[in-house]
């Protein structure tokens, strides 16, 4: 983990409210499922905002985000050459060394982008990856899965193409050695339940409001079957069986 000032390389609008910002990496460490705390303000806002890593190269980091409030609105106004502060890579990330064979990544909304880096890393270590991507209406980031996945399933509630409904309707958990999921909690609970029925290991990427992002303030603690855990430090990746009592 590292706190550093960086420069915006590009900030592109993909849909009405989804953007992808690319910044200079400055040697920051990153692994699949990790996130960074970001800020492009000095005194105007108090807290940095947690955003997952969408893609990374030797020289760059990309973050895909939805504009939902003041912090993400300010991010959306960034232009090439602007300054941005980053703290990361943060969190445990997916246990890549425990993931082997046929893996499904199941994403919903802005939970989709971080799974792209994960799919890439899984493919790089020789695993077979299928992607299940659930959208509300407008589609994005599908091309970021194409190079790394065998099959890609797409659903949307009101969108233009693909299956109409929830992505969990399409998931056949029994086909997989492990399922990784990131998205709204209702979706992850459903994924966890489908996996539990077929005794498939399921890893969930949790979200919680954060202040420090590094494990010091206990602002992001959640109850788990293993006691209170900090989403920012002990997570954000948790075994579904540790999170959801019913599975």
């Amino acid at each position: 983990m590292k706190y550093f000032q960086s420069t915006v390389l590009s900030n592109i609008q993909l849909t009405d409210d989804i953007f992808v910002v690319q910044v200079v990496r400055h040697g920051a460490p990153v692994s699949a499922g990790q996130f960074f705390m970001l800020k492009c303000w000095d005194k105007e806002l108090t807290l940095m905002r947690p955003i997952s890593v969408y893609q990374a190269t030797e020289e760059t980091l990309s973050f895909m985000y939805r504009v939902v409030g003041e912090g993400t609105r300010r991010l959306s106004q960034l232009q090439k050459g602007d300054a941005i502060s980053l703290l990361g890579g943060l969190g445990n990330g997916y246990p890549l060394d425990q993931l082997h064979g046929h893996i499904a990544v199941v994403g919903g909304g802005v939970g989709i982008p971080p799974l792209s880096l994960t799919a890439r890393m899984l493919q790089a270590q020789g695993e077979t990856v299928d992607a299940y991507l659930g959208y509300r209406d407008q589609l994005f980031a599908i091309e970021a899965f194409e190079p790394y996945c065998r099959d890609i399933f797409v659903s949307s509630e009101h969108g233009p193409e693909g299956y109409r409904g929830f992505i969990t309707d399409l998931l056949k958990a029994e086909q997989y050695d492990a399922v990784l999921t990131c998205g709204p909690e209702v979706m992850m609970r459903k994924v966890a339940q489908l996996c539990a029925e077929k005794q498939v290991t399921c890893w969930c990427s949790m979200e919680h409001r954060m202040a420090c992002g590094i494990g010091a303030c206990l602002g992001c603690s959640i109850p788990t079957s293993e006691g209170m855990k900090r989403v920012c430090k002990d997570g954000p990746i948790f075994l579904s069986t540790h999170l959801f009592q019913e599975v």
């Binding site: 005194k43 806002l45 108090t46 807290l47 409001r209 954060m210 202040a211 303030c217 206990l218 602002g219």
Partner: peptide, 9 residues
């Protein structure tokens, strides 16, 4: 547990 407010939290 934590929540941003104007110039504070």
């Amino acid at each position: 547990r934590v929540y941003e407010t104007p110039s504070g939290m």
